[in-house]
Amino acid sequence: MTLLTVERIKLFSTRSPWWCMILATVLTVGLTTIFAATVKSQDLADFDPGTTQFAYNFGLVVMMVMSTLAVTTEYRFSTIRSTFLAVPTRTPALLAKGVVVAGLAGLVGEVTAVGSWGLAKVIQPDAPLSLNTANEYRNVFGVGLVYLFASVFALAVGLIVRQSAGAIVIELVYLFLLENLLPAIPRIGDHIQHWLPFTVGDNFIVANQTHHADGPPVIEGMPFGPWGSLVYFAAICLGLFVIGCALAKRRDA
């Protein structure tokens, strides 16, 4: 418990987490608001809960950056050493950081998702935006869980790389280039795509829907259903985090 308090004090006693939270919220909720306000009346029937989350990746990346910085700035300013002096077994301190940072990312994800959907419903009361099916609930409330595990992924990369710029570049290249380009490889590309963690993580939100023009991309033939996808995504992120913690414990601080 005390270590959770420590990480909470650390996180909120600098300004960058606040900026990241504000930016993530403004980006996702703002873009959705603009989208909702400009949707054409003939497309209104397609404006469903899934569509209100089209911008969630922007907020996700911002919260991943925040998570990485929560680790790498500690290395940059050597406060990680003060942390390890206070908790020489190291792992409990890193777990506490994981819980606090990923928890906050999850919370922000949930708030932005519900905010985007709620505002869209206010702006377009005639659109089919009510939540009835399990799919529709996951469309909105599932976003927070993806944020949470993506944050764990980002923390892990921070622990492994220990350097802000390097870690963030690796994450962005992976997210925006590799996950998008690997599927383009002939013949095996499709098979690779079905196992890419963030693609599978996204499948947790959109699985079992039919794709339509404005809606989120839905990939056919994924190996897991929605909850299986989440478990797979979580396992990859947590596995990476375990590797990061093991490295941090073994290496000289």
Partner: peptide
């Protein structure tokens, strides 16, 4: 207690916040 390097502090954190988190870590 140790002072190895006086710069082991986050520059944007106040002196009190810095001490507060360290104090909290060891009750």
């Amino acid at each position: 207690g140790a002072l190895l390097d006086a710069k082991w502090v986050h520059p944007n954190r106040s002196a009190r916040s810095h001490l507060r988190w360290i104090a909290a870590s060891n009750r």
